[in-house]
Design a protein around this nucleic acid. Structure first.
Lengths: 340, 340
DNA sequence: GAACATAACGTAAACGTTTACTCCTGTGAA
DNA sequence: TTCACAGGAGTAAACGTTTACGTTATGTTC
């Protein structure tokens, strides 16, 4: 009588049926040495027969490794996160890691809860995406003693590498692109005003480009959104109200750029005839826009992959990876007009 | 000397420091009965002091429950999946489950690999999204003995509930909406021809509506894409070529509808003046489109939540949940013109 | 004050693996 | 013939929990 009929078969069942010890089964499972070809075959045959699959939980308990990483996003469903997640997922899976997704909502409480859950679940590493790594988070991360990498974000802790583009330079390039196309009345729809990561640095790039080309900055040309479409719409409305002379707009995210397009259309403004627009991110969304959006590409998918590579390296080699500045480039589509 | 200095503290450390047995610590941890207020306080104090957190892996081993579910998508980064994932993630987290994301790429091999990984990792349940549940998958799912629920998909297995809208009816309603707006030359950009789920059923709805209103079906009015923007573009090009008399187009996904918009614009066709368009999904993308896309809403986010609710119910109550037909509705925006 | 219930714990087995040790057997060299 | 050694295998401890069961002390009831 099988003493273990209803449950999934365990290594014990295999051992019994193959007339060997569980140690031997374990050895062939992990292809170590210490068994003859004959037993190996016998064991493998039994495994096939009874459909045995190792229990990763038991494995994790003794190995203190779960082959699992956690990924934290401010908003999983944003089109921005989706690309990064895709890269992470793919790389992780190819290297035999599974990924827990966490949606922080940019909420401290939620984030802390997730951090604790991830600790309890014994993840081998954590990727923190597009969000500030607050002191508070860093501390529990330290306590967990697991590697962390930041993507599309940055922090000044030696032990946590980051991957991001040079936001200031990228913004500079975008604005310069506009300038080189003959624009001088350039407005900006910035990201969150308090975001020192992707908010203020891009504004700095904008300001610097203006300055380098001797274009005076006008207060009313700078409005803030929070990177989303909805706030992008509001921002654009303000711009139409307060800066009707602008001939071009630099939006700090593609979502907001698309919002600019939408609101412009609503007001009967033609793109790029009446106003030029350049975005930031190069989401699929940019391609889909009408007209297709000129934007700065930051290769989100690759950033996800790269981040995961670094993380796994840190996990497996107990080292700390270098940070990377991701190259960016402007992809020209049809929303910027050359002024004659 | 602390015998466990470098590692995370365990229940043993707590027990030792609080001068109780590990059983007692476990009891207060799970707030069972069997200890005095005094010991409870002492234990809790020690827990705080040394920053103890339970090890979910060890727990999982003995409880045979991991508080973890797996979610399979054909493409995690599609704007369609993103909404569903968001709903799933949120509901799961609120009920103390973590979620593993899996990206199948609609590839049988990959899917099978994931299924095995999920089994090894001992997930408590699985959500299968927007993909056919092949016999092959069903079998290993059966062997795993974990609950499964389908979202935006359907299968005829009594043990696996599904959540979806009535695709045929929804398509019917969309086309009827066009008809009631005076259109009779209605083309369709369908989803994958071989997809009996979201492909052919929507075509059936289209056909039925035409029939009910006495409109003859024209072969050249029906083209196929695979729900994505790129194939939507190709499909629309075909339509412009082969069905220039069409006054309205029903697209089987918002992505394809947006492709229709884009290609139309490219050809100088004005929406909705020259041609009307209705989509399917009601993604955020629909709102973002220029002009905003009229489409049929299928509440993806809620479907994700509902699916997770059902799954957790099945996990915790060892029952099998009912299937649900999600209500759909048409959300009117600006891509359909009333023909006079 | 005996009998008994109950609260408050502790002991140890169990979950499914991995792995350090140990043991046996056969082979080749001296 | 003896010895060393290696290959092939088993035993048992360990990972960090939960929990069935046992034990002790403290009432409570008659």
């Amino acid at each position: 009588m099988n003493p273990n009929a209803s449950n999934n078969p365990t290594i014990k069942d295999v051992a019994r049926k193959a007339n060997v010890s569980i140690a031997t089964v374990s050895r062939v499972l992990n292809n170590l040495s210490g068994y003859s070809d004959k037993t190996e075959q016998k064991v493998n045959q039994v495994i096939k027969e009874i459909g045995y699959q190792p229990n990763a939980i038991a494995r994790g308990l003794i190995n203190k490794r779960t082959q699992t990483i956690g990924v934290m996003f401010p908003n999983v469903s944003s089109y921005f996160s989706a690309d990064i997640l895709h890269g992470i997922e793919e790389f992780a899976n190819d290297h035999n890691y599974s990924v827990f997704v966490c949606n922080t909502d940019e909420d401290g409480k939620r984030t802390m809860k997730y951090l604790h859950v991830l600790r309890e679940k014994q993840v081998d590493g954590i990727i923190f995406s597009s969000e500030m790594l607050k002191e508070e988070y860093y501390e529990v991360l330290q306590a967990m003693k697991v590697p962390v990498v930041l993507v599309s974000s940055k922090a000044d802790y030696a032990s946590v590498p980051y991957i991001k583009v040079d936001d200031k330079q990228a913004a500079y390039d975008a604005v310069q692109y506009l300038i080189l196309h003959g624009h001088r009345e350039i407005a900006m729809v910035s990201g969150t005003e308090t975001d020192t990561m992707a908010g203020t640095t891009r504004v700095e790039g904008y300001l610097k480009a203006l300055q380098d080309y001797g274009i005076p900055f006008k207060e009313n040309y700078l409005v803030y959104g929070n990177f989303t479409f909805d706030e992008g719409c509001i921002a654009m409305e303000k711009l139409i109200q307060n800066a009707p002379e602008a001939t071009a707009i630099f939006a700090a995210s593609d979502e907001m750029a698309v919002a600019v397009l939408a609101v412009a259309a609503k007001h009967g403004l033609k793109i790029p005839d009446d106003i030029s627009v350049i975005g930031y991110d190069n989401l699929k969304l940019a391609e889909m826009a009408v007209p297709p959006l000129t934007t700065v590409d930051q290769r989100l998918y690759d950033m996800g992959k790269l981040a995961t590579g670094k993380l796994i390296d840190m996990i497996e080699n107990h080292c700390v990876a270098d940070s990377s500045i991701m190259p960016h480039r402007i992809v020209e589509r049809q929303t910027v007009r050359r002024l004659t």
